[in-house]
Amino acid sequence: MRVYVDESICQGHTLCAMAAPELFDLREDDGHAYVSVTEFTAELMAAGRRAASTCPEQAIVVED
């Protein structure tokens, strides 16, 4: 179980960090997102799915 951001697709629109700030952080320079946790609880997985649905680029990968 994990959630990650495909950096080759992310454009830094930061919607994931709005939807799930507990799961995503943003790089200072370009706003590209990365997952800020290493342990994926069921709650975080649900947050990841929610965030994935908000991503304009569909850059968030959820592996159950």
Partner: peptide, 8 residues
Amino acid sequence: PRHVMAYR
């Protein structure tokens, strides 16, 4: 971008 989001 990071700072804008901090205000949400």
